[in-house]
Amino acid sequence: MDLREIRAYSEGDDTRRIDPAATARTGRPHVRSFHEDRDNTVLLIADFRPEMLWGTSSSLRSVRAARLLARRGWEVIDQGASVAVLTLTRSRISALPARTGIQHMTAIAQLLAHEHDKALDMEQGSCSLSVTLARAAKLVPAGARVWLASDTQGVAEEDAAALGRLARRRRVTLLCPLDPAEAAPPSLPLPIRCGNTSRFARLSSFDKTPLSTRMRALNVTVEVIADDAG
């Protein structure tokens, strides 16, 4: 087992991993974490780019994505997993490294909320998903699970290569929280206006097949979440 780090004890850490030397030296409990835990390491990636900042119901799709990631993070933290997080907005990428414990998961939830607030400020920038995915490959080891919450069209062609490289040695799942208008669109045509141009259009429900086929070629699983209960 390769030692990853020795850090201060957080609520929820396994007390069997307390490091006696570091605890005695600092006067505070410290624990060890090991790289043998790579199969129990999870990375949460939240896409807060403008394409996610919309919604037709009680919450934006970006909010639904953050809730989904936070819920899954709390579930695996309770199982003793190490969890890391990356957030992507138009202007920046933010991260927290993989750690265990309730205190760390609380910090992840706070980061998700803070970065979402920043995304709503509509700051200018051009951060790409490809750069985020390259950073993800450095943040968690091979064998880790990766949950990427994004738009159904969020992985553009230019991002495919980076996503494929990330998925070669990690279990990557693309989480797509659908807006109600995508899951169960209204049956009547809707008016659409752009400047002086207007027309009527009928929305169709989201078809998962093309996206799943495209992601399968990259060794990525797709989960379409039709409601917050997912």
Rank of each mutant, 00 (worst) to 15 (best):
V140F: 13
P141D: 04
P141Q: 03
A142R: 14
G143M: 06
G143N: 05
G143S: 05
G143D: 03
V146Q: 10
V146K: 05
V146C: 04
V146F: 11
W147P: 00
A149K: 13
A149C: 09
D151A: 07
T152H: 13
T152S: 13
Q153H: 14
G154T: 12
G154I: 11
G154C: 09
V155S: 05
V155D: 02
A156G: 04
E158L: 12
E158C: 06
E158R: 15
A160C: 05
A160P: 01
A161G: 03
A162C: 06
L163G: 08
L163K: 10
R165Q: 09
R165H: 07
L166Y: 07
L166A: 06
A167T: 02
A167M: 04
A167E: 04
A167H: 03
A167Q: 03
A167K: 08
R168F: 07
R169C: 01
R169A: 11
R170K: 11
R170D: 01
R170Y: 06
R171H: 12
V172P: 02
V172G: 05
V172F: 05
T173F: 13
L174G: 06
L174V: 09
L175V: 10
L175T: 04
C176V: 15
C176W: 07
P177T: 07
L178A: 08
L178F: 07
P180Q: 08
P180H: 11
P180I: 12
P180G: 09
E182S: 11
A183F: 11
A184C: 04
A184P: 00
A184V: 14
P185R: 11
P186V: 14
P186G: 13
P186H: 12
S187G: 15
L188D: 08
L188C: 00
P189Q: 07
P191R: 11
I192D: 00
I192W: 09
R193E: 02
R193Q: 08
R193C: 01
C194K: 01
C194T: 01
G195A: 06
S198M: 02
S198W: 04
S198E: 10
R202A: 05
R202P: 02
L203I: 12
L203Q: 10
L203T: 07
S204E: 15
S204I: 13
S205W: 03
S205A: 15
F206H: 14
K208C: 00
T209M: 05
T209E: 06
T209P: 00
L211V: 11
